[in-house]
């Protein structure tokens, strides 16, 4: 474990917590893409499937973190699609998730480390995570604005994988550890946030709201 991965995971936890708080406190999921949250839930379940296959005692933080990620993302989907369904902006959350899931699944079968079920599920989860934020970014571009709290959520969510890139550089240099698939997908994922990062740093930090077109 290094400082970059630690802060990456903390940033990821913060993102999940910020979104849950926003929906719970405002009792509304306006401005939140339910599809992105569904895709994240799929990512966690397919990536941590080993938790279900051979359940081991919660003997380390990693198992606890995996369970937190899975339960928090499923609970977020429950809030969006059931509890606060009336506030779900389905009209603007219109990006076709199939256009993300199918290519990720196909690519996972073509480019993977080992052609076995668990490894392909892991690879699918990595590819899907890279593009899972697109419906959320698409929704913001359609509504033309993002609530400040949603911007903070996106900043934390984007920072998590950006910090992981620093972690991979660190691990390459000090542990000569390389996980090419995760690195390439992580770089693509972070690049998708660049436009948002620019808007966040030039606007939200100064107390302005993000309004598109910028």
């Amino acid at each position: 474990m290094n400082i970059f991965r630690l802060f990456g995971d903390l940033s990821h936890l913060a993102a999940i917590a910020i979104l849950l708080l926003k929906i719970w406190k405002t009792r509304s999921c306006a401005g939140v893409s339910g599809k992105t949250q569904l895709l994240f839930a799929v990512c966690f379940i397919t990536r941590y499937i080993d938790l279900f296959l051979h359940f081991v005692s919660l003997y380390n933080t990693e198992k606890v973190m995996k369970l937190i990620y899975i339960s928090a993302s499923v609970f977020t989907c429950y809030l969006i699609f059931f509890k606060f369904k009336a506030t779900y902006d389905g009209n603007h959350d219109s990006m076709r998730a199939e256009f993300l899931i199918v290519p990720a699944a196909g690519l996972a079968c073509l480019i993977n480390t080992k052609f076995d079920a668990i490894e392909i599920l892991w690879t699918f989860s990595i590819y899907l995570e890279a593009v899972a934020i697109l419906p959320q970014l698409f929704l913001i571009s359609k509504t033309g604005e993002a609530e400040t709290i949603t911007s903070h959520y996106l900043f934390a969510q984007g920072s998590y994988r950006a910090l992981y890139i620093l972690n991979w550089i660190y691990r390459y240099h000090y542990e000569s550890h390389v996980d090419t698939i995760a690195i390439v997908a992580g770089v693509v994922q972070t690049i998708l946030y660049c436009d948002f990062f620019y808007l966040y740093i030039t606007k939200v930090v100064k107390g302005q709201k993000i309004v598109l077109p910028a």
Partner: peptide, 10 residues
């Protein structure tokens, strides 16, 4: 050794 397919990151 066979690169363990174990991915040790979240």
């Amino acid at each position: 050794s066979q690169k363990s397919a174990e991915h040790d990151e979240l």
